[in-house]
Design a protein around this nucleic acid. Structure first.
Length: 320
DNA sequence: AACCAAGGCAACCGCTCGCAG
DNA sequence: CCTGCGAGCGGTTGCCTTGGT
């Protein structure tokens, strides 16, 4: 397409650079009174020596009344990180979940803070995978103590990614449904339905019909795979997961134990725990504990081994 | 106090998309 | 279908501030 005719050009009378308070006041007053309408014609009408594009940016990124300025909260940090893992550099899509922030602000914040923070923790800010190969431990080196600590982080990262995905889909797909477990914040019911624990609801597909949330689809597929692996493992035979990683035949997914012992499941963990606990500085507690348990109890098996990563990457293409 | 480097952030640039004619 | 225009988006730039020496 090339350069559009409306692009700001260095023609005479068009000012560039930082906006002055007087210019801000002119733009603000005009938009509040008339609306912005056509940005190209706005500068002339408002008496500004700026191009329309510059006016639009100034309004969107600074003057809009619904913008919240100031420090980002922990929750906002985590939301951005999780959504970036899911969506990549799609700042407008990410910002859609932070209604009081601008895409420019989120983008700047990512580049100046969050990216570095991830790097410090040993994650590639682009792929959100650990910089040290994620597959190292899956190649038979599960007894490496260094790997063990990585596993914990990986598991936490995966869970947070999934949670972001769940929230993303939930927000976009379910918010208009009047009667729905999620809509009513009855997450436990939703997860129970998926696991067939709640006899008050029919099968998942009957309940959701064609509006079945895809995040749940992912979890369902994952748990299905887990069950499948477990059933094979219970037979005492070694098996190989979808990544071709070898799993010892005597491993016992603790998720199974959790379901049978107290009726809750990994699904419950995903939806019950507040996002704010996912990435505390010390990677301490929270939703990720079940995964840590997975690691400890199963001699190094992790989400990767259960094929969740593969499912997410496949689903990511269809959801976004 | 002066200088310098690094970081943060507002603004710009160039490209793509959607839509109307 | 093609073209041009307006709007939106993501990458980049460059100025300003801050902190260290």
């Amino acid at each position: 397409m090339g350069k559009s005719t409306h692009d700001c050009v260095a023609s005479s009378g068009v000012k560039k650079g930082p906006w002055t308070p007087a210019e801000d006041q002119k733009l603000l007053a005009f938009v509040q009174k008339h609306g912005h309408g056509n940005w190209q014609s706005l500068p002339q009408k408002a008496g500004l020596q700026r191009c329309g594009k510059s006016c639009r940016l100034r309004w969107r990124n600074y003057l809009r009344p619904d913008i919240q300025r100031g420090n980002f909260s922990l929750l906002e940090d985590q939301t951005i990180i999780q959504l970036h893992a899911l969506l990549g550099n799609r700042w407008s899509a990410i910002t859609a979940h932070l209604p009081k922030r601008t895409d420019n602000e989120v983008k700047n914040y990512w580049h100046s803070r969050l990216k570095k923070r991830l790097a410090l923790k040993g994650y590639d800010p682009v792929t959100h995978k650990p910089k040290t190969t994620i597959f190292g431990f899956a190649n038979g080196s599960t007894d490496d103590p260094k790997t063990g600590s990585n596993l914990n982080h990986i598991a936490q990262w995966e869970s947070a990614r999934l949670q972001a995905e769940a929230r993303y889909v939930r927000d976009s797909e379910l918010h208009k449904q009047a009667y729905h477990p999620y809509y009513n914040n009855d997450i436990s019911a939703a997860s129970s339905i998926l696991l067939g624990h709640n006899k008050d609801f029919g099968p998942t597909d009957q309940l959701f019909g064609q509006n079945a949330p895809q995040c749940l689809d992912i979890l369902r597929a994952w748990e299905s795979m887990l069950m499948s692996n477990y059933s094979k493992a219970a037979g005492g035979q070694d098996h190989v997961n979808s990544f071709g990683n070898h799993l010892a035949g005597d491993f016992e997914p603790p998720i199974i134990s959790a379901i049978s012992s107290n009726g809750s499941s990994l699904m419950d963990c995903f939806f019950h725990e507040p996002v704010g606990q996912c990435f505390d500085e010390n990677y301490g507690t929270s939703i990720t504990e079940p995964f840590a348990t997975v690691h400890h109890k199963n001699n190094g098996a992790c989400l990767e081994d259960f094929g969740l990563w593969e499912i997410i990457m496949q689903r990511k293409k269809t959801i976004v």
